[in-house]
C-alpha cells in the first residue's frame, strides 16, 4: 500500500473501510500449517468457532478448508478437532514441507 501524505489522511485518522485488515496477510507468520483430512471430518465446525483468525472457511454449513492468507498456524483447530474414530480431520504439518 502506498503511504499517504498528511493531506491525504482520512479526517481524524478514522479508518473508513470496515474489515480492511483482511487485506493484510498474516499467513507468513506460520511455522506449522493445518491440513484438512476430509475423510475424517464430521463437520462439527469446532475448528470454525474456535479459530482466532477467522481462517476456517465454511460454506453451506460445511467446513471446506483454510484461509491460508490469514491462518497463523496456532493449531487450536487441530487440538479441538474430535475427528472420526480417533483420527483427526485436522493435522499440523511443518510449513514449507
Amino acid at each position: 500500500m502506498k503511504q499517504m501524505n498528511w493531506k491525504e489522511l482520512p479526517h481524524a485518522g478514522t479508518v473508513l473501510k470496515a474489515g480492511n485488515a483482511n487485506e493484510y496477510k498474516t499467513g507468513s507468520w506460520r511455522t506449522y500449517k493445518p491440513k484438512w483430512v476430509e475423510e475424517n471430518c464430521i463437520q462439527c465446525l469446532f475448528c470454525w468457532i474456535y479459530c482466532p483468525d477467522s481462517a476456517v472457511v465454511v460454506k453451506d454449513e460445511k467446513m471446506t478448508g483454510f484461509d491460508y492468507d490469514h491462518c497463523k498456524g496456532c493449531g487450536v483447530c487441530a487440538m479441538e478437532c474430535p475427528g472420526k474414530k480417533g483420527n483427526k480431520a485436522i493435522v499440523m504439518e511443518e510449513e514449507g514441507k
Binding site: 501524505n5 498528511w6 479526517h11 485518522g13 473508513l16 470496515a18
Partner: peptide, 26 residues
C-alpha cells in the same frame, strides 16, 4: 456530524493505533 460512529450502515473505526510510519502525518 463528520463520520459519526452511530452511522451504523457505514461502520468505521475511530482511534487506531498509529506507529512511526503515520504519527507525524496525523
Amino acid at each position: 456530524a463528520m463520520d459519526p460512529l452511530l452511522d451504523i450502515d457505514n461502520p468505521k473505526s475511530i482511534g487506531a493505533l498509529v506507529l512511526t510510519d503515520y504519527y507525524m502525518e496525523h
